[in-house]
Design a protein around this nucleic acid. Structure first.
Lengths: 307, 307
DNA sequence: ATGAGGGCATAAGCTGGTCTTATGAGCGAG
DNA sequence: CTCGCTCATAAGACCAGCTTATGCCCTCAT
């Protein structure tokens, strides 16, 4: 439903109401450098082009963004706010780019990473951005699949470094824990659980039908193990995104990684329900073939993930 | 530094490597509808245009995104991953749009909202999206400022509903708590604190110079109160974004709302340091002039924020 | 079997936006 | 007073992406 309505709201298309990425980057440059001309130089266009671009952006948004003066340009109050929203769009685009770049360099690249879906979707783009910042020349490729697939790719030499999120380490691989991820119970804000005062007991959770990923997914494994194999599905969906959308629309409670619902929680499209009597932690691990300690770029990436 | 390097990495400009918003929306439509033609119809272009757009996107990314067949198109594995990254970009753009729209409708609009900076930046766009989904015709305007400014706007009748994040409710206003926000201590992953095993004592926190917002900001108030006015600044910056950037670059530890660092924590550009012996909770409140209970769209918005 | 319908691809031509170059004008510092 | 920085405006070139008009492929129903 949230999906459908977002769709509808978007009828006259976002792209017509939101400036394009180049314009947003230009705005960020103006904010940072304090001058249209300097910003233009940075993004590699001429000053008049920058001037016109900013102006048409202001026309499009119906708000003055910068105060122009003969000695530079500063953001207006509204401009500062818009710039922060723009920054979020640009950051998402940078993550997109980092991911896509890794996907493109599939063959013959220097560092081939295999990762489980959740990690590939939510964490890797950020790591790749950081890696790219430190070692701009490293070409990284990305293969995504479940734990078994990751293990296969590593053992067959088709990948150099893997990331898995299951409970166990596939045999033949060495691993190190790089982060702990907590699964949390979430509902739409309208759900009765969102109003309860007492924390939820594990038994209640086990008895309630939930919106879940399919059996065999990393998330489902952890939940089943924590509840003793009892998790009762209300709906089973095959992608994290679909589960989220379903939960947001109010179809029922769900259990998801806190990694993937950060935005939804902040925006209060979902609320987190405290649970007691059950440990929903899981480890995220970097893995590699036993004996083949990561070296070079793989080692670099690994150190970035652990900080 | 992260800033500067992102800059550098972006030299050949993101906009040239990331498809524009229209293309990303089209991709999402294809994913959802399973056909290029249907997706084209939904976004209001012809089928050949959609075909060409997707194709040039595949060329740009160097990856096949959809499997075309005479009976429809499905995403490839890589396409599914790319679509999820695209979705995040589009969501950020939708938040941008919701915010910008509210900023534009400054005058003569039906619902005028005044909010503190943090709330305006991180929460309001999401709420406005939700409000727009339920009441597409409501024009909302947004004014941002600190608590005092919000109070003024409400009392002078220039705003209908306010949101503040301080410890106290400005006099003359009624309030209701809509959410609890936790301040958390964060450092770059490389900082020594990121490796400590013991939780941090309040005294240690008070004795360590921190990267902070300026005195008078909501965040700083809460921290000063919690530590007994002792917070020691390493650097004082005037925007949350600047504080974040500084912390990410490793300049030192900082204390920030968990709202604003969700992404950074997920991407492990920052890590959270547990603290004991000090309560860093703060309430986010909706406020209105005493006696003037919110009605109509204001009431609607309020109910969305509380779920 | 055979035609209708939905799916996608290709080709040709037009349109519009956005860039560049060239120039002018305001303000401040030496 | 003039140099150097800022921004604005004007005119023309260019290119990306759209539409319209086709054609082929496959499936399903008659």
């Amino acid at each position: 439903m949230a999906e459908a309505e977002a769709q509808h709201a978007r009828a006259a298309s976002l792209a017509h109401r939101v400036p394009d990425l180049a314009a947003l980057e230009l705005l960020l440059a103006v904010a940072r450098l304090g001058s249209l001309g300097a910003a233009a130089r940075e993004v590699g266009i001429t000053q008049p082009a920058a001037s016109s671009r900013i102006r048409s952006m202001e026309r499009q948004l119906g708000v003055a963004l910068v105060d122009r003066s003969p000695r530079g340009s500063r953001l207006t109050d509204a401009g500062a706010l818009v710039t922060d929203w723009a920054r979020r769009v640009v950051e998402a685009a940078a993550a997109f780019d980092a991911g896509a770049r890794a996907l493109r360099d599939r063959r013959d690249s220097r560092l081939r990473v295999a990762a489980s879906m959740t990690i590939a979707e939510y964490l890797l783009p950020g790591w790749l951005l950081a890696l790219h910042a430190e070692r701009p020349d490293t070409a990284v490729s990305l293969l995504a699949g479940n734990s078994t697939k990751v293990a296969e790719l590593l053992l067959s030499g088709e990948a150099d470094l893997g990331f898995v999120e299951g409970l166990t380490v596939p045999s033949g691989l060495d691993a190190t824990v790089i982060a702990r991820d907590r699964l949390i119970v979430v509902t739409a804000p309208g759900h009765p659980w969102a109003r309860r005062r007492r924390t939820l007991a594990a038994r209640e959770l086990a008895e309630t039908p939930l919106i879940l990923r399919e059996r065999g997914s990393g998330t489902r494994q952890v939940l089943d193990a924590a509840l003793g194999g009892l998790a009762r599905p209300l709906i089973e969906l095959s992608s994290t995104t679909a589960v989220k959308a379903s939960a947001v629309s109010g179809a029922g409670p769900s259990v998801l990684s806190e990694l993937v619902v950060g935005e939804e929680l902040a925006m209060r499209r979902l609320v987190s329900i405290p649970v007691e009597g059950v440990s929903l932690q899981r480890e995220l691990r970097a893995v590699w073939p036993t004996g083949h300690r990561p070296t070079g770029p793989a080692r670099e990436l690994l150190s970035l993930t652990r900080g």
